[in-house]
Amino acid sequence: MTQQAPPTALTPEVQAMVGVSGDVVESWGVVDAEYMRRFTQALMDPDPRYWDDEFAKSTRYGEIITPPIMVSYLASRIRPDQGDPITAAFEENPESDGIGSVERPGELPPVPTNLVRVLNAGNEIELYAYPSIGDTIFFQNRYSDIRERLGRDGTPFLIITRETRFWNQNDVTLCITRASTIRR
């Protein structure tokens, strides 16, 4: 008796998503000292390179710098022209988890799969330069990798990696983040 191979989850339509990019997005506002003050205090990083102007000028950077991946959070701020997504979320569902369905600029199209369960599979961070106060941040998402794996029972699942590159107004790449999710 021949055993039938399980159907692949890595269909041509799924494979075709590798390399698909979202729009280039210019983040709302600029890198500012007040956002950084709150961020570094919450992170518990007292580095004077973030706030002591005189000392910062004496370092190799020659100016105040900001934490390595702060821009990845700053760039996802809800823009003032997006309305009030929290109130909207609770009007839609009184038991909302607090996130609701905020539309994020630059989002990628969904991967065409019927695997709906999503699990975090890991993160990668690459750092190239510290953002400066006053920088305008741009970012772009893309699917950098999609792989198929087999579960213990032989059922295929996908590992989908989404890469985001952040850069400034001088086209200097600041950091690249990659978030991988398992789709079962």
């Binding site: 919450a42 992170l43 370092t59 991946i69 975090n120 990668e124 961070i125 750092l127």
Partner: peptide, 30 residues
């Protein structure tokens, strides 16, 4: 938050490599 943990990691690498090294990259799972 996972986001807090993954922000501590580059801070930790930055601190160790200061003042003139570079915390190039990190990979981790939650």
């Amino acid at each position: 938050h996972g986001s807090w943990k993954q922000s501590v990691a580059p801070q930790y690498l930055k601190d160790w490599t200061l003042p003139n090294g570079w915390p190039w990259k990190a990979r981790f799972e939650h």
